[in-house]
Design a protein around this nucleic acid. Structure first.
Lengths: 106, 106
DNA sequence: TTCGAATATTCCTTTACAGGAATATTCGGT
DNA sequence: ACCGAATATTCCTGTAAAGGAATATTCGAA
Protein backbone atom coordinates (compact mmCIF):
# COMPACT_ATOMS: atom_id res chain seq x y z
CA UNK A 1 0.00 0.00 0.00
CA UNK A 2 1.54 3.27 -1.10
CA UNK A 3 1.61 6.58 0.61
CA UNK A 4 -1.49 7.84 -1.14
CA UNK A 5 -3.54 5.04 0.28
CA UNK A 6 -2.65 5.91 3.80
CA UNK A 7 -5.65 8.19 3.50
CA UNK A 8 -7.79 5.07 3.48
CA UNK A 9 -6.43 3.97 6.83
CA UNK A 10 -6.73 7.46 8.25
CA UNK A 11 -10.33 7.67 7.11
CA UNK A 12 -11.20 4.35 8.73
CA UNK A 13 -9.39 5.23 11.96
CA UNK A 14 -12.36 7.12 13.31
CA UNK A 15 -15.32 5.44 15.02
CA UNK A 16 -18.10 7.36 13.29
CA UNK A 17 -16.58 6.83 9.88
CA UNK A 18 -16.00 3.16 10.53
CA UNK A 19 -19.65 2.83 11.49
CA UNK A 20 -20.65 4.69 8.36
CA UNK A 21 -18.73 2.26 6.23
CA UNK A 22 -20.31 -0.67 8.00
CA UNK A 23 -23.72 0.90 7.60
CA UNK A 24 -23.27 1.46 3.88
CA UNK A 25 -22.52 -2.20 3.30
CA UNK A 26 -26.22 -2.87 2.93
CA UNK A 27 -26.61 -0.19 0.27
CA UNK A 28 -26.58 3.55 -0.43
CA UNK A 29 -28.01 5.93 2.12
CA UNK A 30 -28.72 9.63 2.29
CA UNK A 31 -26.91 11.94 4.67
CA UNK A 32 -29.98 12.29 6.84
CA UNK A 33 -30.44 8.56 7.14
CA UNK A 34 -26.81 8.10 8.05
CA UNK A 35 -26.91 10.84 10.65
CA UNK A 36 -30.05 9.40 12.17
CA UNK A 37 -28.83 5.82 12.36
CA UNK A 38 -25.48 6.86 13.78
CA UNK A 39 -27.00 9.33 16.22
CA UNK A 40 -24.81 12.17 15.12
CA UNK A 41 -25.65 15.64 13.84
CA UNK A 42 -26.05 16.28 10.16
CA UNK A 43 -23.06 18.61 9.75
CA UNK A 44 -20.76 16.05 11.35
CA UNK A 45 -22.15 13.39 9.06
CA UNK A 46 -21.47 15.56 6.03
CA UNK A 47 -17.96 16.26 7.21
CA UNK A 48 -17.14 12.63 7.82
CA UNK A 49 -18.63 11.65 4.48
CA UNK A 50 -16.42 14.21 2.81
CA UNK A 51 -13.38 12.60 4.36
CA UNK A 52 -14.52 9.17 3.22
CA UNK A 53 -15.15 10.53 -0.25
CA UNK A 54 -11.73 12.14 -0.51
CA UNK A 55 -10.19 8.85 0.52
CA UNK A 56 -12.10 7.20 -2.32
CA UNK A 57 -14.10 5.02 0.02
CA UNK A 58 -17.51 6.38 -0.92
CA UNK A 59 -19.04 8.10 -3.90
CA UNK A 60 -22.07 10.35 -4.16
CA UNK A 61 -25.10 10.33 -6.38
CA UNK A 62 -27.23 13.44 -6.40
CA UNK A 63 -30.98 12.96 -6.28
CA UNK A 64 -32.72 16.33 -6.10
CA UNK A 65 -31.50 17.86 -2.88
CA UNK A 66 -30.59 14.47 -1.47
CA UNK A 67 -27.17 12.95 -1.76
CA UNK A 68 -26.89 9.21 -1.75
CA UNK A 69 -23.57 7.86 -0.58
CA UNK A 70 -22.44 4.41 -1.57
CA UNK A 71 -19.31 2.37 -0.95
CA UNK A 72 -16.72 2.09 -3.70
CA UNK A 73 -15.10 -1.27 -4.24
CA UNK A 74 -11.61 -0.10 -5.18
CA UNK A 75 -10.14 0.69 -1.76
CA UNK A 76 -11.29 -2.66 -0.46
CA UNK A 77 -9.77 -4.41 -3.41
CA UNK A 78 -6.53 -2.57 -2.83
CA UNK A 79 -6.63 -3.48 0.83
CA UNK A 80 -7.14 -7.08 -0.17
CA UNK A 81 -4.18 -6.85 -2.51
CA UNK A 82 -2.05 -5.19 0.13
CA UNK A 83 -2.86 -7.93 2.60
CA UNK A 84 -1.63 -10.62 0.25
CA UNK A 85 1.86 -9.33 0.98
CA UNK A 86 1.38 -10.32 4.60
CA UNK A 87 -0.29 -13.70 4.27
CA UNK A 88 3.03 -15.45 4.64
CA UNK A 89 2.92 -14.27 8.24
CA UNK A 90 0.64 -16.91 9.50
CA UNK A 91 0.63 -20.35 7.96
CA UNK A 92 0.83 -22.41 4.87
CA UNK A 93 -2.92 -22.64 4.83
CA UNK A 94 -2.87 -19.36 2.97
CA UNK A 95 -0.28 -20.50 0.52
CA UNK A 96 -3.07 -22.55 -0.91
CA UNK A 97 -5.27 -19.47 -0.85
CA UNK A 98 -2.61 -17.59 -2.76
CA UNK A 99 -2.57 -20.32 -5.35
CA UNK A 100 -6.30 -20.17 -5.54
CA UNK A 101 -6.26 -16.41 -6.06
CA UNK A 102 -3.59 -16.64 -8.72
CA UNK A 103 -5.41 -19.31 -10.69
CA UNK A 104 -8.86 -17.96 -10.10
CA UNK A 105 -10.74 -17.49 -13.37
CA UNK A 106 -11.88 -13.93 -14.05
CA UNK B 1 -13.95 -4.64 12.74
CA UNK B 2 -14.88 -3.42 16.21
CA UNK B 3 -14.00 -0.23 17.93
CA UNK B 4 -10.94 -1.65 19.62
CA UNK B 5 -9.40 -2.53 16.30
CA UNK B 6 -9.65 1.00 15.04
CA UNK B 7 -6.27 1.35 16.73
CA UNK B 8 -4.88 -0.84 13.96
CA UNK B 9 -6.06 1.57 11.30
CA UNK B 10 -4.84 4.56 13.28
CA UNK B 11 -1.43 2.95 13.68
CA UNK B 12 -1.13 2.28 9.97
CA UNK B 13 -2.31 5.76 9.03
CA UNK B 14 1.14 7.24 9.45
CA UNK B 15 3.84 7.04 6.77
CA UNK B 16 6.75 6.08 9.02
CA UNK B 17 4.76 3.36 10.71
CA UNK B 18 3.47 2.02 7.43
CA UNK B 19 7.05 1.82 6.20
CA UNK B 20 8.07 0.08 9.42
CA UNK B 21 5.42 -2.55 8.89
CA UNK B 22 6.52 -3.05 5.32
CA UNK B 23 10.12 -3.26 6.43
CA UNK B 24 9.38 -5.87 9.09
CA UNK B 25 7.78 -8.16 6.54
CA UNK B 26 11.16 -9.65 5.80
CA UNK B 27 11.85 -10.42 9.44
CA UNK B 28 12.54 -8.95 12.89
CA UNK B 29 14.75 -5.89 13.19
CA UNK B 30 16.26 -3.89 16.01
CA UNK B 31 15.28 -0.31 16.71
CA UNK B 32 18.56 0.97 15.40
CA UNK B 33 18.25 -0.94 12.15
CA UNK B 34 14.73 0.33 11.66
CA UNK B 35 15.72 3.92 12.36
CA UNK B 36 18.63 3.67 9.97
CA UNK B 37 16.70 2.14 7.11
CA UNK B 38 13.86 4.58 7.48
CA UNK B 39 16.13 7.57 7.92
CA UNK B 40 14.49 8.70 11.10
CA UNK B 41 15.92 9.39 14.54
CA UNK B 42 16.01 6.68 17.13
CA UNK B 43 13.56 8.29 19.59
CA UNK B 44 10.97 8.68 16.85
CA UNK B 45 11.50 5.06 15.87
CA UNK B 46 10.95 3.96 19.46
CA UNK B 47 7.82 6.06 19.73
CA UNK B 48 6.33 4.73 16.52
CA UNK B 49 7.17 1.18 17.50
CA UNK B 50 5.38 1.72 20.78
CA UNK B 51 2.25 2.76 18.91
CA UNK B 52 2.51 -0.29 16.68
CA UNK B 53 2.99 -2.48 19.71
CA UNK B 54 -0.01 -1.08 21.54
CA UNK B 55 -2.09 -1.70 18.45
CA UNK B 56 -0.92 -5.30 18.53
CA UNK B 57 0.82 -5.04 15.20
CA UNK B 58 4.30 -5.81 16.46
CA UNK B 59 5.82 -7.62 19.41
CA UNK B 60 9.20 -7.27 21.05
CA UNK B 61 11.88 -9.72 21.97
CA UNK B 62 14.61 -8.50 24.27
CA UNK B 63 18.16 -9.47 23.41
CA UNK B 64 20.58 -7.86 25.85
CA UNK B 65 20.11 -4.16 25.36
CA UNK B 66 18.67 -4.66 21.90
CA UNK B 67 15.00 -5.01 21.20
CA UNK B 68 13.92 -6.98 18.19
CA UNK B 69 10.55 -6.07 16.80
CA UNK B 70 8.58 -8.49 14.70
CA UNK B 71 5.19 -8.42 13.04
CA UNK B 72 2.29 -10.23 14.68
CA UNK B 73 -0.08 -12.14 12.45
CA UNK B 74 -3.31 -11.50 14.33
CA UNK B 75 -4.15 -7.97 13.18
CA UNK B 76 -3.63 -9.00 9.59
CA UNK B 77 -5.83 -12.01 10.04
CA UNK B 78 -8.50 -9.84 11.57
CA UNK B 79 -8.19 -7.39 8.71
CA UNK B 80 -8.61 -10.29 6.32
CA UNK B 81 -11.69 -11.39 8.18
CA UNK B 82 -13.08 -7.88 8.25
CA UNK B 83 -12.61 -7.56 4.52
CA UNK B 84 -14.65 -10.65 3.84
CA UNK B 85 -17.68 -8.62 4.86
CA UNK B 86 -17.00 -6.31 1.93
CA UNK B 87 -16.19 -8.77 -0.82
CA UNK B 88 -19.74 -8.71 -2.10
CA UNK B 89 -18.99 -5.15 -3.18
CA UNK B 90 -17.21 -6.08 -6.34
CA UNK B 91 -18.28 -9.19 -8.16
CA UNK B 92 -19.49 -12.70 -7.90
CA UNK B 93 -15.96 -13.86 -8.53
CA UNK B 94 -15.45 -13.55 -4.82
CA UNK B 95 -18.54 -15.46 -3.93
CA UNK B 96 -16.55 -18.44 -5.04
CA UNK B 97 -13.66 -17.21 -2.88
CA UNK B 98 -16.03 -17.00 0.07
CA UNK B 99 -17.06 -20.58 -0.56
CA UNK B 100 -13.44 -21.55 -0.75
CA UNK B 101 -12.66 -19.83 2.55
CA UNK B 102 -15.63 -21.43 4.27
CA UNK B 103 -14.74 -24.90 3.11
CA UNK B 104 -11.02 -24.52 3.43
CA UNK B 105 -9.50 -27.30 5.51
CA UNK B 106 -7.68 -26.12 8.61
C1' DT C 1 -40.64 33.29 -6.81
C1' DT C 2 -40.91 32.00 -2.32
C1' DC C 3 -40.59 28.39 1.29
C1' DG C 4 -38.97 24.48 3.60
C1' DA C 5 -36.23 20.33 3.47
C1' DA C 6 -31.71 18.39 2.75
C1' DT C 7 -27.02 19.07 2.65
C1' DA C 8 -22.60 21.61 2.73
C1' DT C 9 -19.53 24.98 4.64
C1' DT C 10 -17.49 28.20 7.83
C1' DC C 11 -15.79 29.66 12.22
C1' DC C 12 -14.39 28.63 16.72
C1' DT C 13 -12.42 25.91 20.41
C1' DT C 14 -10.35 21.91 22.21
C1' DT C 15 -7.69 17.91 21.96
C1' DA C 16 -4.48 14.48 20.03
C1' DC C 17 -0.42 13.61 17.95
C1' DA C 18 4.09 14.18 15.50
C1' DG C 19 8.88 15.81 15.61
C1' DG C 20 13.04 17.79 18.06
C1' DA C 21 16.05 17.90 21.86
C1' DA C 22 17.44 16.36 26.03
C1' DT C 23 17.62 12.92 29.44
C1' DA C 24 16.78 8.42 31.69
C1' DT C 25 17.33 3.47 31.62
C1' DT C 26 19.32 -0.94 30.85
C1' DC C 27 22.59 -4.05 29.44
C1' DG C 28 27.26 -6.32 28.52
C1' DG C 29 32.06 -5.81 28.65
C1' DT C 30 36.15 -4.57 31.07
C1' DA D 1 31.80 -0.65 39.87
C1' DC D 2 32.14 1.93 35.54
C1' DC D 3 31.61 3.01 30.65
C1' DG D 4 29.51 3.09 26.29
C1' DA D 5 25.99 1.31 23.27
C1' DA D 6 21.10 0.65 22.51
C1' DT D 7 16.70 1.95 23.63
C1' DA D 8 12.93 4.37 26.11
C1' DT D 9 10.92 8.42 28.08
C1' DT D 10 9.98 13.20 29.02
C1' DC D 11 9.17 17.91 27.86
C1' DC D 12 8.15 21.29 24.61
C1' DT D 13 6.03 23.20 20.49
C1' DG D 14 3.43 23.29 16.30
C1' DT D 15 -0.19 21.44 13.62
C1' DA D 16 -4.11 18.78 12.18
C1' DA D 17 -8.44 17.21 13.07
C1' DA D 18 -12.92 16.64 15.63
C1' DG D 19 -17.23 18.55 17.52
C1' DG D 20 -20.61 22.46 18.21
C1' DA D 21 -23.10 26.23 16.48
C1' DA D 22 -24.36 29.07 12.99
C1' DT D 23 -24.95 29.96 8.28
C1' DA D 24 -24.86 29.16 3.24
C1' DT D 25 -26.50 26.55 -0.68
C1' DT D 26 -29.51 23.90 -3.54
C1' DC D 27 -33.48 21.75 -4.84
C1' DG D 28 -38.64 20.69 -5.58
C1' DA D 29 -43.20 22.06 -4.50
C1' DA D 30 -46.79 25.24 -4.13
Amino acid sequence: MNEENIAVFAALAEPSRMRMVSLLRSGPLSVGEIAERLQIRQPQASKHLKVLQQAGIVEVEADANRRHYRLRAEPFQELELWLTGYRELWNERFDRLDDYLKNMPD
